[in-house]
Every structure is written in C-alpha cells, then in structure tokens.
C-alpha cells in the first residue's frame, strides 16, 4: 500500500505536543521532513529545547499514529538547523493565545519584555498590556511566567527562540 505525503501530514497533524495539548506537532514546526518510500515513512523531528522531555514521547506517538493507519515508520531526531519560534505556524500562534499562553514576540521586543523594560506582552486573560514578568523560566523550558497588573492573573509567555 503506497501512501501520499499529504495523507501522512494529515495523520501526523493528529499528534499534539504533550506539554501544550492544543498544539499539533505540525503547528509547532518541529516536524522537519517527511519522506515516503512505498509503504515506509521517514519522519525527521527537531527539539524545541535540547532537554525537551517531550521529544521521545512525540516520536513514539508519531509512530503509533502512523501504525494505526497501517504504515511503518522511522522517526529521526535532527539538531540542525536549530528550531526557532518562527516555525510555529500562524494557526499555532492563534491556538496558543486561545489556550492562555502569550505567543512569542519578535526577538528585540522579546528581550525588552524579558528584561522587564517594556510592557508589550499582552495579558491572555483581559488583553491589558500592563503586564510584568515574574520569572524568565516558566512551567516548561520554552515558557516564561508573567502576571497581569490589571486583572492580576498569572499567565505563560512562549519565549522567542532564534
């Protein structure tokens, strides 16, 4: 049985990032290459952070999702080129915001935000720009912790990585 790349993409799209379940691994931009060789699928994925503990699980889940549809696969971890937050799709950014995680800003704005010099990260709860970084390290390696000075809710910010 030969499978098309489009079909494979559709299957892999069902696999989500275990730490941000609303986001598909396709939207995260961590699937770097898909090759189909008759009924054998080769997938290349790249980690967001070197120590991302989700990578092994993501690899297993991609293989399982493909197997469920009857396709054998190999999943290879590649380090270069290094992942950047630019690879998160527009759809992915939107889903992040809806989920309550502020999407990454561009790099220069990100630096100012993380140094607490500029109020530019918008509260995902009330939309206020009057927010403050509480910690540049958040609940996972890819996030920083913010608090809104208006509604007082804490929220995560997805750090820019370039």
């Amino acid at each position: 049985m030969t499978v098309t790349t489009n079909k494979v993409v559709d299957i892999i799209r069902q696999v989500s990032d275990p730490e941000i379940p609303v986001l598909s691994v396709m939207d995260m931009g961590i699937v770097r290459d898909i090759k189909v060789d008759r009924d054998q699928v080769h997938v290349k994925i790249t980690p967001t952070y070197s120590g991302c503990p989700a990578m092994d699980m993501i690899a297993v889940e991609i293989k399982a999702a493909l197997q469920e549809e009857g396709y054998e696969s190999t999943v290879e971890l590649v380090l270069s080129p290094a992942w950047t937050t630019d690879w998160i799709t527009e759809n992915g950014r939107q889903k992040l915001e809806e989920y309550g995680i502020a999407a990454p800003l561009e790099e220069s704005a990100d630096k100012l935000a993380l140094m607490g010099e500029e109020r530019i990260v918008t509260c995902t709860n009330c939309g206020s720009k009057n927010t403050k970084m509480v910690s540049q390290f958040g609940s996972t390696a890819c996030k920083a912790l913010f608090r809104c000075n208006d509604c007082l809710e804490p929220f995560d910010y997805f750090k820019c990585l370039k």
Binding site: Y49, S50, G51, C52, L79, V134, S135, F137, L145
Partner: peptide
C-alpha cells in the same frame, strides 16, 4: 518558587545538551 523552577529548567537544558 521562581528560582526553584529556573534552576531546574537550567538543569534540564544541561542534561539535554549532555544527551546530545
């Protein structure tokens, strides 16, 4: 809490690099 999370995050980054 914040420094606890930060230090363990740094630890995780280092272990990730070591695995590589």
């Amino acid at each position: 809490l914040e420094t606890d999370i930060a230090l363990t995050n740094i630890s995780l980054d280092l272990f990730g690099q070591v695995r590589n």
